[in-house]
């Protein structure tokens, strides 16, 4: 009732006020929410790029064995075949990112999660893995064994 009697200018003034109020409220919410969301985003951690790691002495690595080696933040599997040949692969299973292991009884690299199998050249030979393990280079320098990225 009263509103109708108000002059038109007062009406528009009110609308303007509501517009400002609503607009600045939205802007304020944005100015609070934006920093919060940005804060929640984890910052990029500079990961130390690892190109090669020292494993140890050749004589300490048994024939027909495998071991997991820390390569930066990722696991790597170093296998030594019965004939003494060394090979290294990324130990992350190509199926669902489990860490693989060496099975002496089977003579294969084996993933416990879903029974995936790879031969000692890293080829996926049985089970769900869709592709071979990522190969790495093994370098024997004197007595020392190094694993390095393929370049």
């Amino acid at each position: 009732m009263e509103n109708a009697e108000q002059p038109l200018s007062a009406q528009s003034k009110r609308d303007f006020l509501k517009f400002i109020l609503g607009g600045s409220l939205l802007a304020w919410i944005a100015s609070v929410v934006y920093p919060l969301v940005a804060y929640l985003k984890p910052p990029k951690q500079a990961e130390v790029e690892v190109t090669s790691v020292k494993v140890g002495k050749l004589q300490d690595i048994e024939k027909d064995s495998g071991q997991i080696v820390k390569f930066g933040s990722k696991p790597v599997i170093l296998v030594r075949a019965a004939d003494g040949k060394l090979a290294a692969f990324g130990a992350t299973c190509t199926h669902l990112d489990c860490t693989v292991q060496f099975r002496k009884d089977l003579g294969v690299i084996w993933c416990a999660c879903h029974n995936g199998k790879y031969d000692l050249t890293g080829r996926n030979i049985a089970g769900p893995p869709p592709r071979p393990l990522d190969p790495l280079r093994v370098i024997v320098r004197g007595e020392e064994v190094f694993i390095s990225k393929l370049t």
Binding site: R14, L17, I20, L21, S24, L25, A27, W28, S31
Partner: peptide, 19 residues
Amino acid sequence: VASLIITTLAVSLFVYIRR
């Protein structure tokens, strides 16, 4: 910018309360 937004909001809120 944030201060401007808050000031605008505060002023309009103040006017709103008065109304």
